[in-house]
Amino acid sequence: MAETTAPVGKRYPAVTYAVGREKIREYARAVGETNPLYLDVAAARAAGYDDVVAPPMFVVVYSSAAIGAALYDPEVGIDMQRLVHGAQEFAWERVLVAGEEVSTVVALDEVRYVETADLTYYVFGATTTDSEGAVVSTGVWSNIVRGAGR
């Protein structure tokens, strides 16, 4: 049978992230973004933003350390060699611009073993807030570990 010792409900310490202009540009280029709002300060300012805008999927960058701490938590005990990224959800409340600082809290929301398929689902929820405490984005990270039960 699957081990069910993973600490469902465990919340991890908040991880802060300073959103930087060059990191936004690096990310935007890596995913092929061409919208000048992500790359050109003048264009972003002309559109009414203080600095370059982070593409929505930049959520991956600012929540990565917080998710990583949960994913690699020995108490959760995920075998990284058997890990598959099953599904992903994000919801955004507003865009972020360079110069902001955000904070992400992750919790292990669910662990589910599917015996017929011998798969274990680990679902992590992430919530990112801005310096005022307002929610910027939320994420649901669904990871699947193959064959963990045997």
Partner: peptide, 29 residues
């Protein structure tokens, strides 16, 4: 790859409104 799916949405809106237009995205890999 999910970022490409996101980009298809934000580029469809385009311009200054594009980045903030995406409110939610879920995918299965």
């Amino acid at each position: 790859t999910m970022a490409q799916v996101a980009r298809a949405q934000t580029d469809a809106v385009g311009g200054a409104e594009g980045p903030g237009a995406l409110q939610r995205l879920e995918v299965g890999f």
